[in-house]
């Protein structure tokens, strides 16, 4: 997983932070700010350049007339963006990206939640189930793409192979489908391996969430006469919404960056699995730097829509501490 983020990172605050730092002397202005600033300054400098500086440089490139490997021909400002948004193929790839993200989110959340729920109260062999459910996330998309490329082979009928073959052998011919070569829904097939890889991760998040709920809450629920279902529905599930939010943030931002998996399964020229990241790569390889940079910026904006509100919320929360 090239860009997985540990859940711990983004799980909103657990209940054990309050007050303790309030009057802690550590918070009073320290003797000197120079030392901490000095220690962190290399990171700030490097990230300032490699994140913010390069975003600006990329924006700058995207405003120019630079469509070959030769030097830039001057500024055209938003022309490259206008061209992108009037290009059917780019709109199609944006649509694909949203569809993929929707399927990926839905799949991982549903499966991850279901598995966590099944394991929640402790079952025999829990560690085995957990390990198996979790293992695909250790594998790269490139490695898993090798086998999924096979499983998602789109031949049907006599020449079918992979999953279609299995469906045929099991008498489930109606399940046979063209997978990722379908013009409208092909991209959803790419979400299948992605869901396979990351549902276990979401399960681990939810499981941590379930286990983090104090036993007293359950007791209290039972006291109030809740049956098991009501207990889940009204007492436990609501406790998990912060976990679900983190899962959405993590899976969502990974999903918007999808690239490896498509390269491994369908390749860069295949039309039905175009997303902005693959187009960006194609434009880069032929030297259309301005268009490539513009696609990169569009991706950044899409991710920012998801991430910035979350970061702002986190920031506010930190300030309150």
């Amino acid at each position: 997983m090239s860009s997985t983020v540990p859940a711990s990172a983004t799980t909103p605050d657990a209940p054990h932070t309050p007050a303790k730092s309030r009057k802690s002397p550590g918070r009073r202005p320290s003797r000197s700010w120079a030392a901490p600033l000095l220690l962190i300054s290399p990171t700030l400098l490097v990230l300032g350049v490699f994140v913010y500086g390069l975003i600006a440089a990329n924006l700058n490139t995207s405003f120019q007339d630079r469509h070959t490997r030769a030097e830039s021909q001057g500024y055209v400002w938003f022309e490259n963006y206008a061209a992108l948004f009037s290009d059917d193929t780019f709109m199609y790839s944006l649509r694909n990206l949203l569809l993929y993200t929707g399927a990926f989110l839905l799949g991982t959340l549903v499966l991850g939640f279901l598995w966590a729920w099944l394991l929640e109260k402790g079952v025999r062999g829990e560690s085995l189930f957990r390990a198996v459910y979790l293992f695909p996330m250790a594998v790269s998309f490139i490695a898993s793409g090798v086998v999924w490329r096979w499983l998602l082979n789109n031949a049907e009928g006599d020449r079918s192979s992979g999953l279609n073959r299995l469906f045929g052998d099991l008498g489930l011919t109606w399940l046979q489908n063209p997978w990722w070569t379908h013009e409208r829904w092909g991209i959803v097939a790419i979400a299948v391996p992605a869901i396979w890889q990351l549902s276990g991760y979401v399960m681990a998040l939810f499981l941590a969430g379930f286990r983090g709920i104090p036993e007293e809450l359950r007791e209290a629920g039972r006291m109030d006469g809740c049956n098991e279902w009501q207990l889940y529905r009204h007492v436990l599930f609501p406790q998990l919404s912060p976990v679900a939010l983190s899962a959405i943030i993590i899976i969502g931002h990974m999903s918007l960056k999808v690239f490896d998996l498509i390269m491994a399964i369908a390749g860069q020229t295949n039309y039905t699995t175009q997303v902005p990241a693959t187009q960006m790569w194609v434009e880069f390889t032929r030297g259309d730097y301005a268009k490539s940079a513009a696609i990169g910026t569009v991706l950044l904006v899409i991710v920012a829509v998801l991430i910035v509100p979350y970061l702002v919320a986190t920031y506010r929360q930190e300030r309150r501490r």
């Binding site: 490329r149 082979n153 789109n154 031949a155 049907e156 990722w180 070569t181 369908a266 295949n270 039905t272």
Partner: peptide, 10 residues
Amino acid sequence: MGFTNTDRQS
């Protein structure tokens, strides 16, 4: 193209 195999993309 109408006479070709459907699994061509693979």
